[in-house]
């Protein structure tokens, strides 16, 4: 069954009021043998003025990183083997190092073009200016692999049954782990799921930045919301849902926590 993806980022109601641009980013790529999706939530606080750039870099690094692994390994067995052997800290370390390298390059560009007049040369300080979370998933026929640094949700629904695929460290309030922290790979939460039995259809993978779950009254209502997205896709199809997704997420932020929201969905119907 072919997999279809949809993705949307919206500026949160609070950022609209403050005229701050959306700090989230999302990316989805569909290949013949696998699909990769990533979402990232730039922190948006005064300490992280370029976190919109940081989140865009984060989703690109994850997708590029996965694609590179596939190219180097050459076949799906080896590809899966990589995540089994190195999918936790080693992969996370490689992703973080590449994120920091690209952040340094982006920052140098801002300095060169006088967008920043005074800048620290300390890379830890620079990284903090671009602070972001990162959630990613690789979906293949026989496995799926999830990756999470910081808050947000990765949910799978099959036959109406919902499962959270990562249970990252639950933090209260507005705290989160971040790519900008020292050695953030220590806090990565990854998991490789074998799916030797064929996944029944319809099914849906949903990645979301924390603004989505935080807009619901509680976890039960959040899960209900996810189930109803799944039902909407099955009922109306991905294309119609995709066309309505922006308005739905704007309404969700306005009536919820006011944060930016990014949702990426992969579904098979």
């Amino acid at each position: 069954m072919p997999i279809t993806t949809l993705k949307r980022s919206v500026t949160g109601a609070n950022h609209v009021r403050q005229r701050i641009r959306c700090q989230d980013a999302g990316k989805t790529l569909v290949f013949k043998d696998f699909t990769v999706m990533a979402v990232a939530d730039g922190h948006g606080s005064a300490r992280c003025p370029f976190s919109d750039t940081g989140s865009k870099i984060a989703v690109n690094v994850f997708c590029d990183g996965v694609l590179n692994v596939y190219r180097k390994r050459g076949n799906m067995t080896e590809f899966r083997g990589f995540f089994e052997e190195k999918g936790d800290k080693p992969f996370a370390k490689a992703i973080v190092q590449e994120w920091r390298r690209r952040v340094a390059r982006a920052h140098a560009g801002k300095v060169r073009t006088n967008k920043i007049l005074h800048s620290s040369e300390d890379m830890d300080d620079i990284a903090m200016l671009y602070g972001s979370t990162l959630l990613g998933i690789v979906i293949a026929k026989d496995f799926f692999y999830v990756f999470q640094i910081g808050d947000g949700n990765i949910v799978y629904i099959e036959n109406g049954k919902l499962m959270e695929l990562t249970m990252g460290e639950k933090m209260l309030g507005v705290e989160t782990n971040s790519l900008a922290l020292p050695a953030p790979w220590k806090y990565v939460c990854t998991k490789l799921y074998d799916t030797t039995r064929p996944r029944t259809t319809p099914n849906m993978f949903l990645l979301a930045t924390d603004g989505f779950a935080n807009s619901y009254l509680n976890q039960r209502e959040f899960y209900l919301g996810c189930r109803e997205y799944y039902q909407a896709i099955n009922l109306y199809g991905g294309e119609k849902v995709s066309k309505n997704l922006r308005n739905w997420l704007i309404e969700t932020s306005r009536m919820g926590c006011g944060d930016d929201i990014t949702v990426a969905i992969a579904h098979t119907t």
Partner: peptide
């Protein structure tokens, strides 16, 4: 033409 669909459910709320 975009067919306007009702937002999927789940009760929304501001954060206390």
């Amino acid at each position: 033409m975009i067919e306007m669909l009702k937002r999927p459910g789940g009760q929304l709320a501001s954060r206390p």
